[in-house]
Design a protein around this nucleic acid. Structure first.
Lengths: 229, 229
DNA sequence: CCGCCATATGGCACTGGGTGCAGTCCCCCA
DNA sequence: TGGGGGACTGCACCCAGTGCCATATGGCGG
């Protein structure tokens, strides 16, 4: 219902990027774009609330998709793992059109206004993560704090891997890079790998822990204890 | 040299906030502000590059101060602890003028444009953290990744505590809240994480766990056990 | 006391993003 | 064939932001 025929929208995006690439973002006016696309100026603002929006034509859809994905989660699943899954969803949007993503990256890198806009987009993703985690961590000690921090860490890991991929002109393996980065976050905030499926159903584990020790350290202890057999 | 006599600047900030608070940010034009302040319109843009900047009059100074603070670090100090120290510096800027900070918070909360601007400000702080950490973590495995993730986590912890303080109209203890939040991050990323000083040094925790249970569930159990006292 | 220069300020016109409104075109349906 | 509604256009307007020049103001050497 939403993907029927936005022919004009696509034409505007194409015209905009053509001009942005050949003479720069700030040197291109909205009038230039609509003239090249052969449409009225008013129509541009029907499809894009602002000039900046034409640079990120599919983020709005991706964001709603991702939020819906998190909302549809199994209540019993690992929250952190679920958020990582959502990150992979977002990454796919970039890797589907490598050249487009790289071009956009070059633009946002050198136009401060676009960087600010991208920031607000990334922030909305992060908020979506955080909202989901807040719901799942509710009741736990420092639930909202942990949700916010973990969301920020996941987003930062994603961005780190994504940017290095974009800098390489989309040559490397983005999936692998993001996987590695997420692994680091998962290690820091517990909930590492899936436990062995062939283990006996019940176990008693005795742990000697120093109060206040970092949680990931405790998890390491648990894991090495469980694996010791 | 920079704090000699920006009398006009202060007058503009005062006039701007008076109007913003009584009729809203978007309903106030720059002409309204300069008329109330009794100065020329051109002078406004001499002191503030944009209308949004008048809402954050001292962030630019704070950011340079903080970057200088990090640059002047002892090369042997704990990098994470040093970044936490920098965060306390930033927090102080907020707590020095509680009413001003709370008013600004109310504005940014409901004006999307201001929120976007604040985001870009926060991002620059985070980048400053990350750059410092990158320098300190250079050579380590995944140095830049760890720097980015830790910087994001620290910023998120600060924001979480700061926002809850701002929501309480500056009533609670911001320092304590930020300290607690930073403690969580320090615990997660190990290194300097100082254990709680008032806790008994050793503890024995007995956990009955179902083998194959998701690791995050186990962590929840541990934490609720540790918190139960 | 006077000219001189630097800096701070004001006025003005202009560009360009964004909006409200009214008119036009076109396609579908009765 | 005659609407009726949605998509498109043109136009006038608001306002943020900029470049340019004119005007104070205030020290300083002669």
């Amino acid at each position: 219902m939403s993907s029927t025929k936005p022919a004009m929208r696509d034409a505007l995006v194409a015209a905009a990027f053509q001009l942005f690439l050949e003479r720069g973002y700030e040197q291109t006016t909205v009038d230039d774009i609509v003239t090249l696309a052969g449409v009225g100026r008013r129509s541009f603002f029907r499809y894009f609330p602002s000039k900046e929006d034409v640079v990120f034509p599919d983020h709005e859809r991706c964001l709603t998709d991702m939020t819906a994905f998190l909302a549809a989660s199994d209540p019993g699943c690992d929250p952190l793992e679920r958020v990582c899954e959502a990150v992979r969803l977002v990454l796919r949007m970039y890797t589907e059109n490598p050249t487009f993503s790289v071009q956009r990256y070059r633009l946002t890198k050198q136009v401060p206004g676009l960087r600010a806009y991208e920031l607000s987009v990334v922030w909305r993703y992060e908020r979506s993560f955080a909202e989901y985690l807040r719901g799942r961590l509710k009741g736990l000690h420092d639930g909202t704090l942990r949700a916010d921090v973990i969301a920020a860490a996941v987003a930062a890991a994603h961005n780190n891997a994504l940017r290095s991929w974009l800098r390489s002109d989309g040559q490397g393996d983005a999936e692998e890079a993001v996987e590695h980065a997420l692994g680091y976050v998962q290690a820091a905030f517990g909930a590492a790998g899936a436990p062995a499926a062939d283990a006996p159903p019940e176990d008693v584990v005795v742990i000697v822990s120093r109060r206040g020790a970092p949680m990931w350290r405790v998890v390491q202890e648990i894991e090495s204890t469980l694996d010791r057999d």
